[in-house]
Design a protein around this nucleic acid. Structure first.
Lengths: 219, 219
DNA sequence: GTCTATATTAGGATAGAC
DNA sequence: GTCTATCCTAATATAGAC
């Protein structure tokens, strides 16, 4: 039982703690995504990671604190993905890599996306400050870049905000509405369907803002 | 007090009942949208429409039955809007009117949209049958129409499903993520912003699928 | 650190007077 | 049909043994 007294490995107590916390956070993310904050129960989360309910309260003082940690973890992942919108690149390259990354996130972090969507839909009680600081400043820099592209006539004149919202909405839809998509698809999307959807989203948006992605390809 | 015994107007009892039901449903829609099913309480709904909690149970046997009625009412509104995708029209006219109608719905029925999004995100426990019947058949007819447009070379070859998901996602985003949009916008969108967003969404999508909306306009 | 047992409160639902 | 008072389950949170 390395759990109780084991100090045979360097820092094993701290590591054990982190591993347990991570297991709880993983389980909580799924339960919060599927049931919402109000519908989720500590019992369900505990069952899902095979711990007694009381242990959750040992690691996280309250349901709300646990939820907050889940949301913060998701925001971090989103922020990293946001970097793939590289303002140094051409409009086509920057938007393609950003959209592709967001689609990948929707596939790999469906539950995180749902928790985020829930949080925003319910008025962002926990992460309002992130919206007003980090997200706002990220958005403003990208809006400025898109405006520059428009001024340089690399992109057709469109309001950059509506463009960004379209990218967010479309990519996140594949996570948040996965259940609806899978119902219509008679099952989960396979690799080629994900690739096709990503390609189509890129192409429609790029052409939509006046970039011809396959201008140099044979018709 | 026409409420108790009043028969002085034709069918007043039935009318009173409908009015009360409607008031409860309206309040419930907002509370379910803002808190989710699990987070919503009968007390909050009762307070919101100024009735004692017990009256809600007189009109709706359980919280779940009330929720079901709210979701069904929303689905009806959505279905009517779906008719604005008129398969007789040209691709441009059909898609423009459909997108515009969906944007209008997002503006006028923000809470309904959120309830729907919540329901789907949580696995559609209540409306799974609608997804499998009504929504699926509606989708299949539209997919067929778009395929015909593609065959006739009126539309660039894109998978019709990804196109429909993009339209749904983008338009519904303005309702479901209204809080985030309003945070970034320092307040609600005004009339001209809604018009501009609608126009931009139409233009990007139409151009994206190979239709030049302003081909006949002066540059 | 882990787990069993329990305190406490919130919330769905109902009984019964009016 | 409306409202007050209440029942009862479920869920958060904690106490305390191990």
């Amino acid at each position: 039982m390395a759990q109780t007294g084991g100090a045979e490995k360097t820092g094993s107590r701290a590591i054990m703690r982190e591993e347990t916390e991570r297991a709880i956070l993983d389980a909580a993310e799924v339960v919060f995504a599927e049931k919402g904050f109000g519908g989720a129960t500590m019992q369900a989360i505990a069952d899902s990671c095979g711990l007694p309910k009381a242990n959750l309260h040992y690691y996280f003082a309250s349901k709300e604190k646990l939820y907050r940690r889940v949301v913060e973890r998701i925001f971090t992942i989103w922020l990293e993905a946001a970097d793939s919108f590289d303002t140094e690149l051409s409009p086509e390259a920057a938007l393609r890599s950003y959209i592709a990354r967001k689609m990948q996130l929707s596939r790999e972090h469906r539950y995180g996306s749902k928790v985020w969507a829930n949080e925003v839909m319910h008025g962002a009680p926990i992460i309002q400050d992130y919206l007003e600081t980090t997200l706002r400043s990220w958005t403003e820099t990208r809006v400025a870049v898109i405006r520059r592209w428009i001024a340089e006539e690399q992109v057709r004149p469109v309001d950059p905000r509506w463009l960004l919202y379209m990218i967010w909405a479309t990519t996140q839809h594949y996570a948040d509405f996965a259940h609806q998509i899978e119902t219509l698809n008679h099952g989960p999307l396979d690799d080629s369907q994900w690739a096709s959807a990503t390609e189509t989203v890129c192409d429609i948006i790029l052409r939509g803002i006046g970039i011809r992605p396959d201008a140099d390809r044979p018709a």
